[in-house]
Amino acid sequence: MADILHEIEDAVPALRRYARALTRDVDRADDLVQDCLERAISRRRLFRPTGQVRPWLFTILVNLYRNSLRGQRRSGDTIDLSSIPEPAVPPAQPGHLALAELARAIDTLPPEQKEALLLVTLEGLAYKEAADILAIPLGTLMSRLGRARATLKTLTGAPAEPHLRTVK
């Protein structure tokens, strides 16, 4: 039982990172992670995960995130895009992509595309693993990824290049 607590603890930095990227709000992200940890810890004996602890935690986190979005819609709360601070990291390194611009573009993605994109890019998960966490078929994951990336490309001002679609 101590083992599963250690495994949960090891996953905390990744959960925080993912929640932060989903919400772009430090407090909201940590609220989600705290809920996630409380849930996982209180259920750790009841639901001995037959698989890995980390994907199980991510599934809990994603569900909590989706619930929080539903709650937000009900209360009419919205995220004020202009209030989002510029990232502290100087936007020098990755080519001509301005980081702040990209961050805002990610925010405009539908939640299900954002969830998929961040699991794959930020967390570096295998496609199958990400699809399992999101409870969607692999094909759905791939199409969400493709759409998310195409949208980001358009929004961040990269020239529209139709070539990918023509490759078969």
């Binding site: 990227a21 990755p94 992509l97 980081l99 990209l102 961050a103 980001l152």
Partner: peptide
């Protein structure tokens, strides 16, 4: 570059 930029943005939170 998109991938790199996403990691640059959010990896520090971890």
């Amino acid at each position: 570059r998109q991938n790199d930029a996403i990691r640059t943005l959010y990896a520090p939170a971890g």
